[in-house]
Design a protein around this nucleic acid. Structure first.
Lengths: 115, 115
DNA sequence: CAGCTATATAGCTCCTGAGTTATGTTCGGC
DNA sequence: GCCGAACATAACTCAGGAGCTATATAGCTG
């Protein structure tokens, strides 16, 4: 529930891969195992962690379990990042101003700021 | 540099506290130690990790070192989250539609969607 | 220069967490 | 009703990382 747990859960590389795979479409445990280069129990363990963090849900079909992403908890990360957006925007603006000063008119037709 | 390292660095609770403290203003190591309930070497170690991830910078003043946030690496987290924004927006819309259906006109003057 | 302050580094301990193998459970097919 | 497929759980190992104490380094102060 806390932003901390979401951060910690998403810090694990294989879990991020799982979430990215499930973003495209729901998948069975077997499909994830095939994509991940770790054992099936390891994948089940990651799915357990992800489920208890509310980041995935599952649907049963016979012996198969289809997992899908539940993105809402990621919103907490987004909210946590909010105060920093202004800071990196400023950093980029400062960088740009610096480039404008040092390189002068060399880049007249250049594309405008990416935010 | 990779989004993975940024995730892992920010997963540590004390490091997140440090970054949040430095968001307000630059601080010395001693100030951070006073706020954190861990030893001074532990704080220095966290600062080292944060510095090598590009998340903080330091300025020397006599024996003191003032640390400040460098927010740019956090932008990678923001970018990573991007594809999921549409998903949680949809989840919230679905929830709202559901509430509208089940509770009908009970909440006529209610505040509008928060995004 | 002696001693104090502020911070970094070294060396160590300890616990957590990610991985493994082995086994349990559930379900469909024959 | 049995066997195999699909997944979860149990029990264990092992490495890394976060913490600590002790010590080194750098700079002010008197």
């Amino acid at each position: 529930m806390a932003v901390g747990s979401t951060f910690e859960v998403m810090a694990e590389p294989n879990r991020r891969v799982i979430v990215e795979l499930l973003r495209e479409r729901e998948r069975t445990v077997g499909e994830l195992v095939g994509a991940l280069d770790v054992s099936q129990p390891a994948v089940s363990k990651h799915l357990r962690v992800l489920r208890s963090a509310g980041l995935v849900e599952s649907r049963v079909d016979a012996q198969r379990r289809y997992y899908r992403v539940q993105a809402l908890p990621l919103r907490e990360l987004d909210a946590w990042l909010e105060p920093y957006r202004a800071m990196w925007t400023k950093s980029l603006d400062d960088l740009e101003r610096h480039l404008d000063q040092t390189q002068g008119g060399k880049r007249a037709g250049r594309a405008r700021k990416a935010r």
